[in-house]
Amino acid sequence: MKTGVSLHHTHLVTNDIDRVCRFYGDNFDAKVVFDDTIDGDRNVFMKIGDGRIHLFESRNAPPTDRNSFHHLGLLVEDLIDTLSHLQRNGVAVTEITDVPGGRFAMASAPDNVLLELFEVEEGESRRYFVG
């Protein structure tokens, strides 16, 4: 069993991030803890109790006959070790992408579920993702 991994967030795609933030804030007391650009697109992290939602604003709205679920985010302690473990088990993973404050890779789970595996560096940005 792999240790040092925890379910961190559900990632949703929206074409109106402010409307979604208001909905979760007004109805579930969600708090925005991160609102910035990642890879050129607006991204917002909201905390709801101990859980998190990561919103990605896309110019291409999700089709109306489908929900906006994109992936599950898994916070890992050692990204390289985790990816090696997955690859040894035959899981397809992407290359690592460096972003401010950390890095991530994507992996495929059964039933076409996309997983984001990410680690966060020590520093100011860590408080948005850990704790």
Score class of each variant (00 low, 15 high):
residue 1 M to H: 07
residue 4 G to V: 09
residue 8 H to A: 02
residue 8 H to P: 00
residue 9 H to I: 12
residue 12 L to V: 15
residue 12 L to Q: 04
residue 12 L to A: 06
residue 13 V to R: 04
residue 15 N to M: 06
residue 15 N to C: 13
residue 16 D to V: 06
residue 16 D to W: 02
residue 21 C to K: 13
residue 23 F to P: 04
residue 24 Y to C: 11
residue 26 D to L: 12
residue 26 D to N: 14
residue 29 D to C: 08
residue 30 A to N: 07
residue 34 F to R: 11
residue 36 D to E: 12
residue 37 T to Y: 08
residue 37 T to E: 09
residue 38 I to P: 07
residue 40 G to Q: 02
residue 45 F to L: 15
residue 46 M to A: 09
residue 47 K to S: 13
residue 51 G to K: 05
residue 51 G to F: 10
residue 52 R to L: 12
residue 52 R to I: 15
residue 55 L to G: 08
residue 58 S to E: 07
residue 65 D to V: 11
residue 65 D to K: 07
residue 67 N to Q: 07
residue 68 S to A: 15
residue 68 S to Q: 08
residue 71 H to P: 02
residue 71 H to C: 13
residue 72 L to K: 03
residue 76 V to R: 00
residue 77 E to R: 09
residue 79 L to T: 02
residue 80 I to L: 10
residue 80 I to Y: 03
residue 81 D to F: 10
residue 82 T to Q: 12
residue 83 L to Q: 13
residue 85 H to S: 14
residue 85 H to Y: 13
residue 86 L to K: 04
residue 88 R to K: 14
residue 90 G to Q: 00
residue 93 V to A: 06
residue 97 T to Y: 03
residue 99 V to K: 11
residue 100 P to N: 09
residue 102 G to K: 01
residue 102 G to P: 02
residue 103 R to W: 04
residue 104 F to N: 09
residue 111 D to L: 10
residue 112 N to Y: 06
residue 114 L to S: 08
residue 114 L to T: 15
residue 115 L to M: 08
residue 119 E to G: 00
residue 119 E to S: 03
residue 119 E to L: 01
residue 119 E to H: 02
residue 121 E to D: 13
residue 121 E to Y: 06
residue 122 E to F: 01
residue 123 G to W: 04
residue 126 R to D: 00
residue 128 Y to R: 11
